[in-house]
């Protein structure tokens, strides 16, 4: 008969617990080395952003003057000029996109959070919205080309706006749903208990409470759409002239101007591309900052 294994293991003398770790042991050194490496990686993550901002300011600010906003893009080889029409085109197309995406996204979010919460339809809708978030932006352009451009027979601001709206809808929808879900259940129950219909509850109680969060989502979506190029390349194309209120013609945008001017061999155009980048980044960052302000002030 052998001894029980448990007894043997108990019989092994426990080593004295060591409460101090030598500073030169491999484990300590390895840990320190990894901490330094991670720190370096984190610092290195700053480099691209600093470099982009530095280049934008250094090369962009040289041309930043009033003519930029009031003049048309120069033809190949010409000097001077600006990109006022591109700024205007970007604003118009993002406006068209927001007019479609904000009601669409908000109403669908209300359905998901208020009327059909936890229903299987809502899960499918949410899944579809996430699929749309992951849709490459150029495919939004391909879709708008296949539906609108081929139908109208021309590149247009409408097609560009619709392409952008497909990118905005999921952002508006998912952030609005998140904001609506933050509204406490008690508030809804109180409204219903007072005899409000569910629509009155949504309009008078839930939406006003969730408004800051929803606006943040709209701002994020606007910032994203303003910087997009790929969906506009073959939906809005570009236009050398001013936007004259006609939505059914090719329209200029800042992003496409930067793309067109980035690889031409003319110094003037390249300078304008940098300046347009500076304007675009400032525009996008300003919209982002406003969005963050709204969230912060509501807390």
């Amino acid at each position: 008969m052998t001894k029980m294994p448990q007894a043997t293991s108990l019989a092994i003398p426990m080593p004295e617990p060591r409460l101090h770790r030598s500073m030169t042991s491999f484990r300590t050194l390895f840990s320190m080395l990894m901490s330094i490496l991670t720190g370096l990686i984190a610092i290195f993550a700053f480099v691209p952003l600093l470099s982009v901002l530095f280049m934008l300011i250094w090369r962009g600010i040289a041309r930043l003057n009033l003519a930029i906003f009031t003049e048309l893009p120069p033809a190949a080889g010409m000097t001077g000029g600006g990109f006022g029409n591109a700024i205007m085109g970007t604003i118009v197309m993002v406006g068209v996109a927001a007019l479609i995406a904000v009601p669409f996204g908000t109403l669908a979010a209300v359905q998901m959070s208020e009327f059909g919460r936890n229903s299987s339809t809502s899960s499918v809708v949410r899944f579809c919205a996430k699929v749309l978030t992951g849709l490459p932006s150029i495919l939004a352009g391909v879709f708008a080309y296949a539906t609108i451009v081929l139908l109208m027979g021309t590149f247009s601001a409408v097609a560009g706006g619709i392409a952008l709206s497909i990118l905005m809808i999921p952002i508006v929808m998912l952030t609005a749903e998140e904001a609506l879900r933050q509204v406490p259940m008690k508030v809804r129950e109180a409204a219903l208990g007072m005899g409000a219909t569910r629509t009155q509850m949504v309009w008078k109680v839930v939406l006003p409470t969730a408004l800051p969060g929803m606006l943040t989502g709209v701002m994020l979506a606007v910032a994203r759409a303003a910087g997009e190029t790929a969906p506009l390349l073959f939906t809005a194309l570009f236009n050398q002239y001013w936007f004259d209120g006609n939505l059914a013609q090719p329209t200029a945008s800042l992003a496409v101007l930067i793309y067109n001017f980035s690889s031409v061999p003319f110094k003037n155009q390249v300078e304008l591309a940098w300046c347009a980048s500076l304007v675009l980044v400032m525009l996008v960052l300003a919209v982002n900052l406003i969005g963050q302000r709204i969230t912060r002030s509501s807390r």
């Binding site: 982009v52 090369r59 303003a226 190029t229 992003a255 390249v270 940098w274 980048s277 675009l280 982002n288």
Partner: peptide, 16 residues
């Protein structure tokens, strides 16, 4: 912020 910068600006930065 890195995520907020438009991709066409990254393209320009990449070239130059």
């Amino acid at each position: 912020l890195l995520a907020a910068i438009p991709s066409v600006v990254y393209g320009l930065w990449g070239i130059y």
